[in-house]
């Protein structure tokens, strides 16, 4: 299990990286490499060129602003997880990141890399969907912004063009009166989840849900929003019956076929349970935040 031969470049600017990408169709960006290196070692991937973007100074650093968190493409997951500023702005991130693989992997892996990799079972794409974040993208023709809802097209496939790269991931700060929760069920600590649910619920002064955003990983060909479940919650006080109805609706978002770890029916069961549990936690946290 040794990597195949490839050319290797270390651009020092985004422009250089994009140019390298444009010049070699069969190229791939190397950031943290925690997924890429494994696929190289298995020789599942066999690219002609590796573009190591870790030397690009412009891709480093986190900015926590009044409205959003900007995480540039070379920021390691562990840095975001440990950042108190990030945690203060949106505590969902730490809760999600603590479930991503193991510390040793988060030390190298990047937020942008995981999102660009777009594994259907990975947690960070689901987090991006639930927070309604965006990615900043740069290509030979300039920059653009892609909303989370337009990003994930299939397992390991995004809407980025072949010569584009993510330069930053932007995640809105947690809105007022909003509670959050992420729960997943993985066979082992750190494994990709059989199912994972992100929940964000915003309550009004009467405890009524004004907005609910639910997303899931591991249950379809991409991370998905659970819109039918969100619709059940919106406008309600999030009592147990409402939550149960939403959870039941969430089951129908499961489209993954049976695999060796979980049948579709079992995944539906997991989604039901996890939806109930995350929404309940998010609701309680929203109530706490409102009270505080």
């Amino acid at each position: 299990m040794k990597p195949p031969l490839f050319d290797y470049v270390t651009p020092e600017s985004v422009e250089e990286a994009v140019a390298a990408r444009a010049a070699e169709e069969d190229s791939v960006l190397l950031a943290g490499g925690q997924s890429l290196l494994a696929t190289l070692n298995f020789r599942i991937a066999n690219p002609a060129l590796l573009i190591d973007i870790s030397r690009i100074a412009a891709l480093k650093g986190i900015d926590v602003g009044a409205g959003e968190i900007i995480i540039r493409a070379m920021v390691r997951q562990r840095e975001v997880e440990l950042s108190d500023a990030v945690h203060g702005a949106n505590p969902l991130l730490r809760e999600v990141l603590q479930k991503v693989a193991h510390t040793v992997v988060r030390n190298r892996g990047t937020i942008a890399g995981s999102i660009a990799h777009a594994d259907a079972a990975a947690e960070l794409p689901a987090m991006l969907l639930a927070t309604e974040g965006v990615v900043d993208v740069q290509g030979p023709g300039g920059t653009r912004v892609i909303e989370a809802s337009d990003l994930f097209k299939f397992h390991l496939t995004t809407s980025l063009a072949g010569d584009e790269m993510i330069t930053a991931v932007r995640i809105p700060n947690l809105a007022p009166n909003t509670g959050w929760s992420f729960k997943e069920f993985a066979r082992r600590r750190g494994d990709y989840a059989l199912a994972g649910i992100c929940a964000l619920v915003t309550l009004d002064d009467n405890g009524r849900c004004t907005k609910a955003r639910l997303s899931a990983c591991g249950i379809a060909s991409t991370a998905v929003r659970l819109e039918s479940a969100e619709a059940e919650l919106a406008g309600s006080t999030l009592d147990e019956n409402t939550i149960a109805r939403a959870a039941k609706a969430a089951r129908d978002c499961v489209t993954a076929a049976d695999d060796s770890q979980a049948s579709t029916a079992y995944r539906r069961h997991l989604v039901d349970t996890l939806t109930q549990r995350t929404v309940a936690v998010a609701r309680d946290r929203a109530l706490e935040r409102r009270a505080a």
């Binding site: 490499g33 494994a38 070692n41 992997v105």
Partner: peptide
């Protein structure tokens, strides 16, 4: 050689890393 077992763990710039998932 695919980043699961941890036998190859080293420290890179003060943080642990899989040396099998690093060139």
């Amino acid at each position: 050689e695919h980043g699961v077992c941890g036998c190859c763990t080293v420290s890179i710039d003060g943080a642990t890393a899989r040396s099998c998932l690093t060139l």
